[in-house]
Design a protein around this nucleic acid. Structure first.
Lengths: 122, 122
DNA sequence: TCTGGTACTTCCCAATTGGAAACTACTTTC
DNA sequence: GAAAGTAGTTTCCAATTGGGAAGTACCAGA
């Protein structure tokens, strides 16, 4: 009869749990994955481009989310020397390392949707 | 000069974005991954076991999160016929399909931590 | 009968998140 | 000079999230 934690007391689990918290604190929120996914797909987009691509987002959120992603080195921001000043947002090399993770989530989400709305013989 | 969305207008992107939203709506929150991870690691835990394993969680949150996970068929709840009534929480077969995703997040989180606190020659 | 263990629920509150609308600021075009 | 396009910021508000503490209910053992 155990009265104290056992499973998660191991070093390996502690590290894993911490890692998941780290990752999710960077990637949580309604828009992060949408923005990252869009930037992975189409490189170098302006603020207004993103506003049009990421359906439903407003200027405040987009601005804030891009800042978050920038300080975490997932997205880079470059002010261009154009007549009406434009800004180029691109995914960084480091941001690209999220591709397998995003793919895995998308894959699971697609399967989930199938299992809910899909065939009834399950 | 494009004025309308182009990248995310494709059917493939729409489906992917929807899938990511689906998945995250089930898995977001402070505790979901911790609970799932613990249940994947150690099968069949009681409410109080989980309360001890998932460091920091309170009864209210644990109860609510377990209900969420149960309705989405990721965790199963079984009331045991014991003297002081006990409940067994187990991960479902479907819940186990989250393993690769959880592994991927943990892996990325560990690498992220290394890139922040790790070697400076990067 | 009182303490302790199981498994919760309820209530109240604070912090965070997210959104709409308006506003800034600068430039080019009509 | 007004309109439109660039890239945001600010303000105000509502909804969601999360936590602490206490309460409920049932049973067993000292």
């Amino acid at each position: 009869m155990k009265k104290t934690a056992e499973i998660n007391a191991t070093q390996v689990c502690q590290v894993r749990m911490q890692a998941i918290s780290d990752a999710m604190s960077l990637l949580s929120g309604k828009w992060k994955f949408h923005i990252l996914g869009t930037l992975i797909e189409g490189n170098a987009l302006g603020f207004m481009d993103l506003l049009r691509e990421v359906k439903g987002i407003g200027t405040k959120m987009l601005s804030k989310e891009l800042q978050d992603l920038e300080v975490n080195n997932l997205v880079s921001r470059k002010v261009m020397n154009t007549k009406p000043i434009t800004v180029e947002y691109t995914i960084t090399e480091y941001g690209k390392t999220l591709s397998p993770l995003i793919d895995e989530i998308a894959k699971w989400g697609i399967d989930y949707r199938k299992s809910v709305y899909g065939k009834t013989d399950k």
